[in-house]
Simulated scan of single mutants.
Amino acid sequence: MAWLAVTVIVGTMLRPQTAGIAEIVGFLSGGIAWNVLAGAVLLAIATRAFGWRDLGFRAPRSGPVLRLAWFPVLTLLPFYAIAFAVGLPPAQAVLFLAVNTALVALSEEWMFRGVLFAAFRGRMALWAAIALTSVLFGAVHVLNAFALGDIRLAAAQAVAAMMTGTLLVALMLRTGSIWTAVAYHLLWNFGILLVAYETAKYPLPDGPMPPATYLMPMLVVLPNFLYGLILLRRLPDAARSGQTGAD
């Protein structure tokens, strides 16, 4: 709850009151997201204080990374292709977007694939821990309704985040390291924000958006979700028993 309060409530206070997509992108490209940094610092303090040593902060094995990450990397290419096609932001904006997406990826993976997943895994079956962690990861994104002003769009993003969370935990388990999930989370968000920097400048049409708008976030992440399920079905015995460093 403390992490959620710091990252979400403080973040709401720092952003403009009428924050839409363009304002959020402007906030992330105009300076450090101090609320996200504070959330990461809070997790570091808690990890040190409580002696959490099973959160996956170890170097990934290069073999599994190269063998398993090819498909998720392919799904990133359209974002970066579009970003180059529409034009990249100024260098300073790119720098702040990179720093802030790195902070978001680290903080959220530390919280969900690290702290929460480790806690759930010690108390329930592996698939239950995976499902609950992914659902909670998606549920937090419903809070985007306060920024977007559209509960339906926020709900669609929440479902998409839950689906993405399945891939992220699969990558962590198969490579034995949370850093794999952090890296992919960073690259995914960074690609989206590079595109949004230019496209968010165009106002949305008045009135209700077509249903396809709400389906789009889920359709975009569907291939990664299915791939994550495939990876989870083929978990080695060592990963199932909690030794995530094996493959």
Rank of each mutant, 00 (worst) to 15 (best):
R48K: 06
A145N: 07
L235K: 05
V142T: 11
A170E: 00
V6K: 03
M124R: 11
G114N: 02
A156M: 08
F71E: 03
L171V: 08
D150E: 08
M163R: 04
H185M: 12
A22H: 14
S107L: 01
G11E: 07
L103R: 00
G176T: 10
L235V: 08
A33F: 10
G56M: 03
A93F: 14
S29A: 03
A44F: 15
V10E: 07
T18E: 12
G165R: 02
S29T: 01
F112L: 03
A85M: 08
A119Q: 01
M162A: 15
M162T: 13
I21L: 15
L37V: 14
L193S: 01
M163Y: 09
M162E: 12
L28C: 03
V140H: 06
L116N: 02
A33E: 06
V41S: 06
Y197N: 05
A170R: 00
I32L: 13
Y202E: 12
L4P: 01
R53L: 06
F84L: 09
Y214T: 08
V169R: 06
W34E: 02
G63A: 14
T175L: 14
L103T: 04
L77T: 10
W127Q: 02
R174C: 11
T180S: 05
R121E: 00
G26E: 12
L186K: 10
P223G: 11
R67I: 10
N100F: 15
E23A: 15
V10P: 00
M172T: 11
P90I: 06
R58W: 10
G31F: 08
A170P: 00
A91P: 00
L173M: 10
L153M: 15
Y227H: 05
E198S: 15
F27K: 01
A69M: 14
A160I: 03
A212L: 09
A105L: 07
I82H: 07
M216H: 14
P236Q: 12
D150H: 09
F27S: 02
Y214D: 10
P210F: 11
A129K: 00
S107Q: 04
W110L: 01
L222Y: 13
L167K: 07
H185E: 13
M218V: 14
F190R: 01
L232A: 03
T101W: 08
M13Q: 11
A33T: 06
A81V: 15
L132F: 11
N35D: 12
I192H: 06
W3E: 00
L55C: 01
E198W: 04
A46Y: 04
I130P: 00
A118I: 02
V159W: 06
S177G: 08
I192W: 10
T175W: 15
I21V: 14
L106P: 00
I82R: 03
